[in-house]
């Protein structure tokens, strides 16, 4: 530690350009940081893969023969398997909620959020960077899951462009949910609380939907909830775009226009939870 004192000559940081260009740049710097972490802690990605793969295999072979899909008489398990995949995909993308929540709670806990908040950076960038990195992770998980799904017999029937649109809607839903996770992560005291807080409500949300079973046999009240569940809209849209069996379509508006409903739901969730999370970030205290 003998170098010249020259390195201590004072200067302020360059003036922030402000505006969207700076926000994008800062977000990418933070996203890069989170992606580096992902590579260095591969366990997180690997465990993130095991659960959905388990679900694919369990639901396909255990429930497969027992759950009839309306409109497809006979108990051909391959019909349910095709019906199921969009549901598993959707459930998988929403697990990004727990990842984002735990990551941000961990950053709070370790003092990194304080470091970031003391820097002249764009206010939303820490959270945007995190959610973007989670989106990359979700996309990778989806890729592996699609391979597994194809192995157990899932196919798309209406061509690649429509299938890609379906995957796009699924990823957008996952991105929207990671903003819910961000808000949870900023609101709890420990990363552990963020993980369970990020997962607990996902179970009722994903099960009171058309993801695993057709809604036509649910009690009327639950059926309404399921029809208007943002999750159901995305699942239904994905089934349509993949050309998979859809069960009996309900008359509820989101089930009649699932792609549009899914898009609107996701954008609404992003708008609401991004606003809340960024506001929370600005006053965050570890």
């Amino acid at each position: 530690m003998t170098a010249s004192t020259e390195s201590f000559t004072h200067s302020r940081a360059p003036r922030p350009s402000g505006g969207p260009a700076q926000a994008v740049r800062d977000s990418l710097v933070v996203a890069k940081r989170n992606l580096i972490r992902m590579v260095r802690i591969p366990e997180v990605v690997i465990f993130g893969l095991i659960q959905p793969i388990m679900f694919v295999v369990l639901f396909s072979y255990v429930f497969g023969g027992a759950i009839p899909v309306p409109g497809h008489p006979g108990n051909d398990p391959s019909v349910y398997r095709e019906y199921l995949m969009a549901g598993i995909f959707a459930q998988t993308v929403t697990f990004a909620t727990a990842g984002a929540g735990a990551g941000i709670a961990d950053d709070m806990h370790k003092g990194l959020i304080d470091r970031f908040r003391s820097l002249p950076m764009s206010r939303g960038a820490v959270l945007t960077g995190r959610t973007l990195a989670d989106l990359v992770q979700t996309a990778l998980t989806m890729l592996v899951l699609i391979v597994v799904a194809v192995i157990v017999g899932w196919r798309i029937h209406d061509g690649f462009p429509r299938a890609l649109a379906g995957i796009g809607l699924l990823l957008l839903l996952g991105y929207a949910f990671s903003w819910i996770g961000a808000l949870i992560g900023l609101s709890v005291r420990t990363p552990e609380a963020a993980t369970s807080g990020g997962l607990i409500w996902l179970f009722p949300l994903t099960f009171i939907s058309n993801a695993f079973v057709p809604t036509s046999n649910m009690p009327a009240f639950l059926r309404h909830v399921a029809d208007w569940n943002p999750f159901s809209a995305t699942v239904q849209a994905a089934r349509q775009l993949f050309g998979n069996p859809q069960g009996a379509a309900s008359n509820a508006w989101p089930m009649q226009h699932p792609a549009l409903a899914s898009l609107l739901w996701s954008l609404l969730i992003i708008a609401v939870f991004r606003t809340l999370a960024v506001r929370k970030y600005r006053s965050a205290t570890a």
């Binding site: 350009s17 700076q22 933070v30 002249p120």
Partner: peptide, 12 residues
């Protein structure tokens, strides 16, 4: 990587 990130977030 830490120092580089902080520098970039200081808008360097």
């Amino acid at each position: 990587e830490n120092l580089q990130m902080v520098g970039q977030l200081y808008q360097m």
